[in-house]
Design a protein around this nucleic acid. Structure first.
Lengths: 209, 209, 209, 209
DNA sequence: TATGAATGAGTATTCATTCAT
DNA sequence: GATGAATGAATACTCATTCAT
């Protein structure tokens, strides 16, 4: 009977659209996983292809180059960081909650986008120059926002007047970034526990006594 | 007859001995520099040779393989960390000074062996298995010692009873390691200033209120 | 029911027929253009497809292979050369006019089929063997006819008795073929002017003094 | 006896110098041969290596890239053309001998450097831009000198006043270049015979009657 | 007619390594 | 100690071609 066979071109956009997007995501996922495991330079397109279940050359149907794949992985790796921090700063939460928000927001992406974040953190330096620049600007903006947070805490009189805001900023970012390699293998280290411990350390370490 | 052949090592201990050692160090230095800049996988023996001012093939006079060079660089990168921490623990300094000692000892090597530490931190995972195991043991030992330090602080009643020693340990190590990439380019960030800021943050953040 | 489905080829013989032929010609044109610009080996089906405004895979609707496309381009590139020369030989024009006819007939196709001729001249050697053989025969036939023309001129007593007909033939064909790359960029070089100059040179150069 | 064995390190510079140069020449020769046979784009480094009797990767000991090999081949292919023509122009030979000199000088290199000339003529267009520019300037200079020759012949009153010097120049260069593909397979076509026939045609074709 | 996804063989090039000298 | 020449395996990437839809 007419209509008894599924017609691929039915529906509004057709299934190939949704599938195509999904398949592309799978490819980027595969790249992220291999980059995360071996580092960009140590990763072979061969292995990315194997993980995707495809011939090596077929990868180039999904991205134009290994560089471009790294770029996309890094883009997804940074996505949201700045926005999250801006939201925290703009909120009317009390300062300690804001610091907690900074840390929570920095650790949260490890839950679902660990490979992306990992690659971004370790391999962004080998990005082709224009992408590296753009991402460098984002990073600096993020650092500036975080530092601003601590400066405000000092201005409010909550944090010690002699707090070295720049160093504390770098310490916080550093400790959070350092979690990427061990998160998942460190036993009993949930995002929540890490967040609690880091936030407490940083807040108490900054307060006026 | 013994002595009838010219013996290269004859004549005092010979300048060739001293020179040989020095030259070898230069080779390891060159490898460390290139590994630090490009990462192990991204580094070419070509470039190491160029930096040493030698033909590519001649490198193999200094190390048997690229792997072996990495191994030596990493060995020098970890050297002293554990001993330093053991000395701190064994000392009769007050607890806050001990924490400061941990941090200072962790940051100190960046001054003179930055490339070595950098390579060790980033590329130890690609070491050939036996070396990786050995270095893994050292790392774990180091972490255990650091954690012990904080536990003692809790036991002494100086640090809060609910301090998450494991997380704080990872935070401290993380913030110190994270300094490697930016130390040198971050303006006005001397080892002393970093040490001060990190130590104050960690100590105050851990104290009983 | 018959007729209840739209039949694409229905309606007279259909404009689709004419369109199909035209579209096929466009495809061959695109191939000729890219082959002319990059050479057969340097040309990619990708670029042919782009020029035709079609996806790469769709090209294979027009020709079964890149080789086959070259074959068709070359076929169109040689078409008419032999016939033209046969007509000239068969005519009752005086010898000088015949020589002029040879040259004019050789240059003429550059006006409208330049890409085809260019590809034929440069890339016929990489044709698949059967096609190459066939075209080789045509070429040799053409050369023989041209040589015959000069021999007749000698026999008629118009051209010097010691004219090296073979060499002159090759000279004439060579100078005409050589025009393909520069025709179009050489300023003020119309087909007419080239024909005039070449014909005068060859005729005067061959005459009995 | 001392000296009865060839001592490689004897002589002033050592044999490796001479050998190295020779070996490099062999590599360029192999490249020229394969480029001549298949065209630049159709040639594989694989085949060049095979002809040189060496592994594919080892080619890169001799040139940094396929492009660079083409460049060197082309450089050798053009070498001497301009100088030869300048010498002819500067000589005090009578005009007909000068025209003959132009043709002879153009054909001569086919004897010993046929592959080089062939590649230069066919593939110079795909040279990397800077090399292409440089060679383009040389070519234009060559054409200008040749045209000058004919102009002088007209000025001397030896060649017809209405001689189309530009077209004649292109004709001469074209017929000579066209000889490259068939020289060697055309029976009984020695350089001398070709030179004689071409020179006679061109000179007689240009003379005042 | 045409597309999108994929293949598999091939490309130039790089690389760590070897070894006779 | 060091070089120059070479290897062989791996690299990222391109290409002509196929085929279900």
């Amino acid at each position: 009977l007419p209509g008894s066979f599924p017609r691929p071109s039915a529906g509004s956009v057709g299934p190939s659209r949704k599938t195509a997007k999904k398949r592309h995501d799978e490819a980027v996922d595969a790249a992220a996983a291999v980059f995360a495991e071996r580092g960009y330079a140590g990763a072979s397109t061969q292995e990315i292809a194997r993980r995707l279940g495809v011939q090596q050359g077929s990868l180039y149907y999904y991205f134009p180059s290994k560089d471009a794949a790294l770029e996309e992985v890094c883009r997804r790796g940074v996505a949201g960081f700045v926005q999250n921090l801006e939201a925290v700063l703009a909120s009317d939460l009390p300062m300690p909650a804001k610091v907690r928000g900074l840390i929570a927001g920095h650790l949260e992406p490890m839950r679902t986008r660990r490979n992306y974040v990992h690659v971004f953190l370790r391999d962004r330096r080998v990005l082709p120059t224009p992408a590296r620049r753009k991402i460098g600007r984002l990073s600096r903006r993020y650092e500036r926002l975080a530092e601003q947070l601590f400066r405000r805490g000092v201005a409010e009189g909550l944090f010690r007047a002699d707090l070295d805001c720049r160093m504390v900023t770098l310490a916080v970012i550093g400790m959070c970034n350092a979690a990427v390699p061990w998160y998942g293998s460190e036993p009993d280290a949930s995002i929540e526990r890490i967040t609690d411990a880091f936030a407490r350390l940083v807040i108490d370490g900054s307060l006026v006594k």
